[in-house]
Design a protein around this nucleic acid. Structure first.
Lengths: 348, 348
DNA sequence: TTGAAAGCGATACCAG
DNA sequence: CTGGTATCGCTTTCAA
């Protein structure tokens, strides 16, 4: 004989024991002897509704006793929106400068009551990753670097993102752009070296994958600075290892360069060391300039010249995100962040 | 006369136009002329159900046309679980070593089909933050550093986390522990300096907030190494700036130290530079040893001695997370990650 | 092979 | 002041 399973709606005969099941607002309601609606009102301090003080206390007590934590997904499903700002987690080793910036940005957005999540993306292609990001229905997406194309932006917006901001070398259709003009970093370096009388100029290009987005524009910037001059530019692949540095230094006299822009301060330190070990004088034989203005550079001897990059203030950027979220219809803004300035020390 | 609003369930008279609303599976179903169930079957390749090829194609076409992206929150709400592994985003400037490790871990967990989310926490207190993490109902939580207490762990578990792992100086009740034994880092350094004949030993303690979790154990390790010997230990507060370094160096002869463990390689570089600028010989007058074995140290002259820290392999750690998730009932494991070894170069 | 419907957890209407 | 209930988007039995 077939039997029928009868499920009593919303009221299991025995409350499921212990840590086996996660407490819900219904559990809190049951324990407090009120309805789920009341629980919701109390825990969210809904001002449109007055709940008596004894009831409030019972609800709070019940919630604490059960260790109740609201379910963010359920809440935002119901609400139709969240306050999640999504950023892809960097998948290349990223400098101290940048991680610091991320931290500050998180803090600043937190002040505005946003929650920042960094999503660990598998593939390097932004437009595919955009799909994974869109599944989380973030209210805003902040994408550093290149890789996100117009269709990625469109996908995110169709999925409810009220603002998409890119932080990178070029504008992307439909997104607010914070142009980090790495080309101008190279340009400043090239102009500086030229002004110092150098004419045969090398540019370090890191061999580590994932840095092309920065190294290419920097190289192009140097090229542009020296176009229509009597100076020449040589591209110098270099991995961040002593061996690679030594190999480059050995070839140095054959290269006949009198100056080098070393991509950043860390590569500059590596190169300076290996040049000095080869008996090549800095800045006498070869001038060296880095970028990023790390503490590191000030500690080297000779002190390292560098191109300092002014990152946008985290608070300003957070405010921009907030404005964009509040007014999604506004046309995408473009901000030029050209804070590249040469800090001339002793190595150039 | 009162009027009644009749809402036709699930079938708005006019499909909402354009990008105003986010397409749902119901929209896909309507466009493809099938039911929502069928859409779900097709898009998830449900093997228990056979769907005719023409239907599949219609569904896929409709999904693509609408730019449909499934709603992760709704899905995991229904499913009752997610594959999200949550980590707090570091809120202190963290070394290159560590960011590299995070990247690899994300990749390794991605291979196991987990999604890693770094949550930007506001307060530094882990137990309060735990509540915010719990709202996201992650399947596992991976917490570096100290700050998460037993009640934080309990809260996360009650909220459905099948595994909580801490990556830090000490065990936490209820969580799997990967003990990063910073005390032994200090111990190795102290023993090394003692063996090299040094007796008046300084230990740099960074003044930057947030690093105490690491600097305290390292200091204690040195103390332990030198207990019951004729050596003395002096605590040296130092901020990561040239001025702070210079101030410390000026006091140096008054301090009468013949060796120093400089917290890590970066602080060691700072200190070495300011000592040398004061005419204090390294290692002649004062031996210096750092930690972390950064490239940086090999490029200094004298080459920097250091304590190398073996981080666990990201793949192993990912596998551990996976095991813990699969078998939440298993008792918490404790893994000692004592990979601290002295790399003796020229500065000590 | 496809469709109808229940329900995951939380919120906000409306009625009592 | 409080409770019932529809709803968000999706998956998954159960029926047809």
């Amino acid at each position: 004989m077939p039997y029928v399973m009868v499920q009593i709606p919303n009221t299991p005969a025995v409350p499921p024991p212990g840590p086996l099941s996660v407490p819900t607002s219904a559990d809190v309601a049951r324990l407090a002897g009120v309805s789920r609606a009341t629980v919701s009102y109390v825990l969210n301090n809904t001002s449109a509704v007055r709940i008596s003080e004894p009831t409030r206390r019972r609800v709070h007590a019940a919630a604490k006793e059960l260790g109740y934590v609201p379910h963010a997904a359920a809440r935002s499903l119901r609400a139709g929106h969240s306050r999640m700002v999504l950023m892809p987690a960097p998948n290349v080793p990223v400098g101290a400068l940048y991680s610091q910036f991320i931290s500050e940005l998180q803090w600043a957005l937190g002040r505005l009551d946003y929650t920042v999540v960094q999503h660990g993306t598998v593939g390097p292609r932004g437009d595919e990753a955009a799909r994974a990001w869109a599944e989380l229905r973030p209210v805003a997406v902040l994408v550093p670097g290149a890789g996100l194309g117009p269709q990625g932006v469109a996908l995110l917006k169709r999925s409810g993102a009220r603002a998409v901001l890119t932080l990178g070398p070029e504008r992307v259709e439909g997104a607010h752009a914070l142009l980090m003009d790495h080309e101008s970093v190279g340009h400043r370096a090239g102009r500086h070296l030229y002004a110092r009388g150098r004419r045969r100029i090398g540019v370090v290009v890191p061999e580590e994958p994932g840095l092309e987005a920065y190294s290419r524009p920097r190289l192009e910037g140097v090229r542009r600075a020296l176009r229509d001059t009597d100076a020449t530019v040589a591209e110098l692949p270099l991995a961040y290892s002593e061996e690679s540095g030594a190999r480059l230094a050995e070839r140095w006299s054959a290269l006949g360069l009198d100056a080098v822009f070393a991509y950043n301060d860390e590569y500059a330190m590596l190169l300076m060391r290996t040049l000095q070990d080869q008996g090549i004088g800095v800045p006498g034989d070869t001038a060296v300039i880095g970028a990023d203005d790390l503490m590191l550079g000030r500690l080297l001897r000779p002190r390292l010249s560098t191109v300092r990059i002014e990152l946008p203030s985290a608070r300003d950027l957070a405010a921009l995100v907030d404005r964009a979220v509040r007014d999604p219809a506004a046309p995408p803004e473009t901000h030029e962040l050209l804070g590249a300035t040469v800090v001339h020390r002793d190595s150039s």
